[in-house]
Design a binder for these strands. Sequence first.
DNA 1: GTCTATATCGAGATAGAC
DNA 2: GTCTATCTCGATATAGAC
Lengths: 211, 211
Amino acid sequence: MDSKHPRNPTRSLLLNHARRLFAERGFSAVSMRDIARSVGLQQSSIYNHFDSKQSILIELLRGHMLTLNQCRNDWLSDEVSATEQLIAFTQFHVAYHIDFPDDVFIAYMELRSLEPDNRKALVRLRDEYELSLQAIVQQGVTAGEFQCVDVAVHTRAIIAMLTGVTVWYRHDGRLDKDTVIHSYVTAALQSLGIPANDVAHQHELKKVKHV
Amino acid sequence: MDSKHPRNPTRSLLLNHARRLFAERGFSAVSMRDIARSVGLQQSSIYNHFDSKQSILIELLRGHMLTLNQCRNDWLSDEVSATEQLIAFTQFHVAYHIDFPDDVFIAYMELRSLEPDNRKALVRLRDEYELSLQAIVQQGVTAGEFQCVDVAVHTRAIIAMLTGVTVWYRHDGRLDKDTVIHSYVTAALQSLGIPANDVAHQHELKKVKHV
DNA sequence: GTCTATATCGAGATAGAC
DNA sequence: GTCTATCTCGATATAGAC
């Protein structure tokens, strides 16, 4: 059935509008009528493209999680120091979260709206992502580059700190994207005991390499 | 009407169960029947204690926000250095968030479920709390104790970092509450450029004073 | 103050014409 | 592939007996 092909334009439109609505109001508070009307269709027409409301959510969450891991792997290389890896991770994470805040918000809030099997698969992808940062932190602690009380707690602390950018960042706000990223890179590195002078130095190196 | 007095036991029971259900499934996904059945009542009996579903949410959110600000004011004194204030704030914030994760989660997620007027009043209380941390960070930067790129961004970064404890902390987990708090105090201070040795020292001082 | 019964509405999903 | 019409269910809220 061609209508269920990922590149069907009506289907893509529905996905994009559902993403925005789910992020704004929450999955349970959005009706199929809301989604249909936002793209100028009748409610029943959605079922030509998706099996159910839940299947729309699953596709949004799977797409986000897979893309996040894929982009992370493309961006990072593991042939550098833990400090350089942390800088690269932070730059990637904040930039991605600034660009796709709706996906991030839905992934954070609506995993519970999934049936158990679907939820488990997505939690695995989320854990994979978080553990990739934990490996960096552990490597830095082992090498004596980083100082922290507990690697697992500190990893979660950094992830939460960076992800919070989605709550307040606005494209027309006081600070531009690069400044915001620089702020978070400094905060993340300093949180692990890297002095501010070294931060500025390393950060600059990384920016020349990757941006 | 006595049934709507705050200390009515059935009313308190309803509030407590609604809090747990809203945190687990989200406001929109919980029905009045769910709340009533969880305390052994019929659905219509709730209306003897609350005017509407929305009024239950308002009472939970208002209670949380007022208590949070009140407890913070009781805990902190502003006659010490910015570093000492930050330690006290972090200890309070993490401890409170460990103790009342459901309130925190609902406050984060369900402000959007409120009608505009009610939402505005609560956003004001939330901002008041966040600005109290921003004042500490600003004081530390001005005094040369703290290093950061942008005070507002770094304040939000710290709040998000600390609040994240609600996502993963379990009372029967690997780490006890004091160790978790110590981890976050270290992370917060280091993020502002305070060296780890000083952190251990100051933190100990603070613990002796307050615990 | 709790109950049963009911009103009114909107939800997700399906059937079948075009 | 979209439409209209409809099914079935459960939602919030109210009325009135006890």
